[in-house]
């Protein structure tokens, strides 16, 4: 059992947990993830290590409530415990002094790219970060990202923060103004990572993306996380999750993520119904 030490709501449906997981916190490196299972009936869901404080034994995760498992996780409170936590998994990000790097994130990709951004800065890179959200109420971790970047651009789809556009538009501007970019990192929705990769390919900017296929064991045993990179089948949990964005077959990844839409909807409906029936949490404060 792993205890939840602290809980924060970062934006609607996006929560940040601090977990008591000293051994994993000690070992985890930027780009790695954990797998957790809330209870005996729960599925194993992968979440990126958003931060660690090894001396205190703290591991941070940030997740968006998109279905039953993440919604259930979101109902837990400090003092509650998660049944299983496994990690750190996957290969760490390759951190080097590349020169000028751009870190691009969309939505809940922001907390995922945060430790990578910080490590890149510490390694002596000039870091330009671009983070995008649907609207200004969904903006996450702006201050944290500003602290670890030389320049931070925050964009919203609807312009409600005064800077309208997609992260690709912002990236295009940075390229236009003549910035020589040595490497780009992108984390976020698959479609966003695809668009970023298409753009950087035009300018031959090496681009690393962090893929999020469906996973099960996440230890390299089941093969569900297979993705196509450069025409070859790779297993994201052990060969990744980061890959060369110019070689990833994003369309296949998007299709495979839809394998269980029917079951996911069913699980969510049952969950919401039982939650309403039990009602005690129906009008609890989420702020």
């Amino acid at each position: 059992m792993v205890k939840i030490l602290n809980k924060q709501v970062l934006a609607t449906g996006i929560k940040r947990f601090e977990l008591d997981a000293p051994e994993i916190a000690w070992r985890a490196q930027p780009g790695q993830f954990v797998v957790l299972r809330v209870n005996e009936e729960g599925e194993r869901i992968p979440l990126t290590v958003a931060d660690t404080r090894p001396e205190e034994g703290v591991l941070v995760i940030v997740f968006q409530e998109v279905g039953k498992s993440t919604a259930l996780l979101g109902t837990l409170e400090p003092g509650d415990a998660i049944m299983d936590l496994i990690g750190p998994l996957g290969k760490p990000t390759e951190i080097e002094r590349f020169g000028t790097v751009v870190c691009v994130a969309g939505g809940v990709g922001t907390p995922e790219i945060y430790p990578v951004t910080r490590a890149l800065r510490q390694a002596g890179n000039k870091v330009i970060s671009i983070i995008g959200f649907r609207n200004k109420d969904l903006i996450l971790m702006e201050e944290e990202m500003r602290r670890v970047s030389d320049e931070l651009i925050v964009a919203t789809d609807d312009g409600s923060n005064g800077n309208k556009g997609l992260v690709t538009d912002m990236l295009q501007q940075v390229i236009y103004r003549g910035e020589k970019i040595d490497r780009c990192f992108a984390v976020g929705p698959v479609i966003m990572m695809k668009m970023v990769s298409l753009l950087t390919k035009k300018y031959s900017i090496p681009t690393i993306v962090s893929l999020n296929p469906i996973m099960l064991d996440a230890t390299g045993m089941c093969g569900v996380c297979r993705v196509e990179v450069g025409g070859e089948t790779k297993f994201a949990c052990v060969d990744g999750p980061e890959f060369d964005g110019h070689k990833v077959n994003f369309d296949l990844l998007m299709a495979r993520l839809k394998t269980y839409v029917k079951e996911e909807r069913q699980a969510m409906e049952i969950f919401l119904k039982s939650r309403n029936e039990n009602c005690r949490c129906a009008n609890r404060k989420e702020k």
Binding site: E41, G42, E43, R44, K68, S69, L216, D217, M221, C222, G223, V224, T259, Y260, E263, E264, Q266, A267, I270
Partner: peptide, 25 residues
């Protein structure tokens, strides 16, 4: 893969979905 199919069904008890959360086709 057989490993995935059987792991879903055995370890994760997907045959008891939706009582258990892990789905299987």
């Amino acid at each position: 893969s057989a490993n995935e199919y059987l792991t879903r069904s055995n370890l994760m008890k997907a045959y008891l979905f939706p009582r258990y959360d892990t789905p299987i086709v």
